[in-house]
Design a protein around this nucleic acid. Structure first.
Lengths: 114, 114
DNA sequence: TGACACAATGTCAGATCTGACATATAGTCG
DNA sequence: CGACTATATGTCAGATCTGACATTGTGTCA
């Protein structure tokens, strides 16, 4: 998010920051969630890059469309292990998975406190 | 394992190679197991480096001595997620976890086929 | 040898995860 | 508008994981 936009939102009574700040997560919880988000994004990027549907991917993984959707959105019901296993099945190397997990990628957003 | 020792064992009717070869694992299964082994080793290395017992680590993690032992031996009952969560709680960064997972580390051993 | 500290192994109830199914939502084309 | 395709969401039975406990090695010290 651009600096200017963040300032504008703050003045309008919005809170701006990371999910960690919103939810009051510990550092470990935040790191784990960031890892999962990065893995989920890679999974989706791979699917898009190969012009596949979630059903295609599900078949390749031996899973279902709904589970693939949950994987791509890093749903709470999806473990890190499932994400990594899936990437491996789709052809990612151990090194690539390591890079995805370690890559720092700040995310930011805004919400209006009730 | 040293090259010379491997040769010597082969001549004595032993099989020499990786766990993947022994067990006939798929590439994905082998990669996942290698990742878990690397994480498990890091966990143990960290404990030893800090001169802690498994009970100490268990207390820090909110777990039990037996589970820590299983983690360090990459027992089948231990998920990758538990290993990563534990490393994070012990102070590892997301980047460090990524490096551990991506680091290539060939392992080799021998066994006598029955 | 026994006593002690630490690590490994087996088991299991309760917690969590997963594939599958149903259903809902969103977008596109006629 | 309806028909169709793709994705998202809710639910749940069965599978897997996890903390805890008991027990079994294993090494060390006297």
């Amino acid at each position: 998010m651009k600096k200017a936009k963040a300032e504008r939102l703050k003045k309008s009574g919005w809170k701006v920051g990371t999910a960690k700040e919103f939810l009051g997560l510990s550092d470990e919880e935040a790191a784990l969630i960031e890892m999962k988000l990065a893995l989920a994004k890679s999974l989706k990027d791979h699917r898009i890059a190969h012009r596949m549907t979630q059903i295609d991917v599900a078949n390749e993984l031996g899973s279902s469309q709904s589970r693939v959707a949950k994987m791509e959105s890093a749903d709470v019901s999806v473990s890190m292990e499932l994400l990594v296993r899936s990437l491996l099945v789709l052809g990612a190397s151990r090194q690539e998975v390591g890079r995805i997990i370690g890559r720092k990628k700040a995310t930011s957003a805004a919400y209006r406190p009730s």
